[in-house]
Simulated assay, not measured.
Amino acid sequence: MAGALRVDSTVTSGTFSLDGQTYDVDNNVWVLGDDDECLVVDPAHDLDAVAALAGARRVLAVVLTHAHDDHCREAPAAGARFRAPVLLHPADAPVWRLTHGDLRWDADLADGDVLDVAGEQVHVLHTPGHSPGSVCLHVPALGTVLTGDTLFQGGPGATGRSYSDRPTIEASVRSRLFVLPDGTVVRTGHGASTTVGEEAEALGR
């Protein structure tokens, strides 16, 4: 038996660079699947740790919530290692090129796409603001949403750097995430998980 759909995670450490500045960061890496197959979401910094998390499962795709270098730097190598396509929203192309130049990811994500894994559906929500092509991954069967850097415990992700915009991210959070059930668990790109209800109460719908 393949078992039920679940989310596994690990934390990897490295750097994030943009606009001439570099920061030390810890990233949450998420693997969504059952005992047989999975999606790898944002394989940051340490591919050996990511591979250990995926185990012997067949990786259907490497899914990027956005193209900041801490999230996408290892994506081509992850795609090759897992023999899986790398998926990214095309609006993040200029951000991706900062790290990978003319090398392209394998397939585009679009708002409303549905990814199938372990007999369940993962819904792609385009949530621009932190970057133009940021997406969140809503998994109704698990009552969870993987938000990358769009929503954290404590509010929306950072703006103020190139390719980001505060009013846009706030509109994305309110229109795409705060409409989900309040009990939906928010699994973030960095730091602790939270819920839609907690963040909606703090920020205001």
Rank of each mutant, 00 (worst) to 15 (best):
G79S: 12
G79L: 05
G79F: 05
G79A: 10
A80L: 06
R81W: 13
F82D: 08
F82H: 08
L87T: 11
H89K: 03
A91M: 02
A91H: 13
A93D: 15
P94Q: 07
V95M: 12
W96G: 03
W96E: 08
R97M: 14
H100A: 09
H100R: 12
G101W: 04
D102L: 12
L103Y: 02
L103W: 10
L103H: 13
L103R: 15
R104P: 11
D106A: 12
A107N: 01
L109A: 01
A110H: 15
D111M: 03
G112W: 04
D113I: 06
D113Q: 05
D113L: 08
V114W: 02
L115G: 03
V117L: 07
A118Y: 11
G119F: 07
G119N: 08
H123T: 06
V124S: 05
L125N: 04
H126M: 00
H126W: 15
H130C: 08
H130S: 12
S131M: 02
P132H: 04
G133H: 04
G133Y: 04
G133V: 05
S134Q: 14
V135R: 03
C136Q: 05
C136S: 13
L137G: 09
H138P: 01
P140N: 07
A141V: 09
L142I: 10
T144I: 11
V145P: 07
V145N: 07
V145K: 13
L146R: 11
T147W: 05
D149Q: 09
D149G: 05
D149W: 01
F152D: 11
Q153I: 02
Q153Y: 10
Q153F: 08
Q153P: 04
G155V: 08
G155S: 03
P156S: 06
P156L: 10
P156T: 12
G157H: 12
A158P: 03
A158I: 10
G160L: 06
G160F: 09
Y163L: 15
Y163T: 01
S164N: 10
R166C: 00
V173N: 04
R174D: 10
R176F: 00
L177F: 02
V179T: 15
L180Y: 04
L180S: 03
L180C: 05
L180H: 02
L180F: 07
P181N: 02
P181M: 03
D182H: 11
D182A: 15
G183D: 14
H190L: 06
H190D: 02
G191R: 01
G191F: 10
A192P: 14
A192T: 14
S193I: 00
T195S: 14
T195M: 04
T195W: 03
T195E: 03
